[in-house]
Design a protein around this nucleic acid. Sequence first.
DNA 1: GTATCTGCAAATCCTTTGCAAGTCA
DNA 2: TGACTTGCAAAGGATTTGCAGATAC
Lengths: 151, 151
Amino acid sequence: MHDMHDTGGITERLIEKGYRLTPQRMMILSAMESSHDHISAEEIYAQVAAKYPNVNISTVYRTLELLKKLGLVYEIDLGEGRIRYHAEGSGHHHHLVCQDCGKVIDIDESTLSSLKDILLRDYKFQAELRHVGIFGLCENCRRKQSGGDRK
Amino acid sequence: MHDMHDTGGITERLIEKGYRLTPQRMMILSAMESSHDHISAEEIYAQVAAKYPNVNISTVYRTLELLKKLGLVYEIDLGEGRIRYHAEGSGHHHHLVCQDCGKVIDIDESTLSSLKDILLRDYKFQAELRHVGIFGLCENCRRKQSGGDRK
DNA sequence: GTATCTGCAAATCCTTTGCAAGTCA
DNA sequence: TGACTTGCAAAGGATTTGCAGATAC
């Protein structure tokens, strides 16, 4: 594993499926992969627009939709009212999202493997836990828990 | 446990906290509680508007925000691009949401209790698993899994 | 009486879409 | 060349907000 993520895999699969390799698509891919975290459409757009000022955000959305359809990026919903994206191949982990302070704690994929097994066994449901955050309260916010009063 | 849910608890707590009991608020509460499932703002609005045609949907949103702040309703995000709401006190369960066909499978709260324990023990994170759906593929969609080709 | 609530209309935010022009293969 | 892509502008859906009038207590 090196610092540079593997964009090649994705570009190859695009071509292989008959899609064109446009500069916009390449820049969008590179923006996604330079992000160590999950990135929103708006953030991708900002990064791409810095070098190539006349891209349009609708192109970003269209590209993300395509990549999603091909299974090359994942969506994740951290409850912000906006979707974040994640390139296939950059390591997986799950997210604990604090509803109070908004902190996101990354946890190892293995933590939830037994849950996956149970859901598959008992409900024949193949869970994709990478796609959502788990909401709750972090240690700090749990302590200063008090609220509930007016305004 | 009876068929009629307990609205009283919520109205009492509103008064207790110094909020006013308006007809709109009462109707919103009753719409929420007559819903056996989770209900969206739009659905609450439709129900209330049926009897009281000049309510405004912004009142619904403002009421839901208030109740949420007081911990009297929960939000749940089933990945539809819209939030659903659930009155505190109506029974809890978790949701498996099929990403392909959209089917929602309800599972018992106890299924995830060991996960909660692990997250609390290892990460000091108090998970509120009621607030999100778990996404994945249901049995049927897993079988007819094929996709990935163009259009 | 008066601070709290509401309705209305307009604004905002994220995302999608129609269409004509541009471009990759 | 010609189908695939893009930019632009406008539409869309969910939710929020400013404000003046209405109302619960």
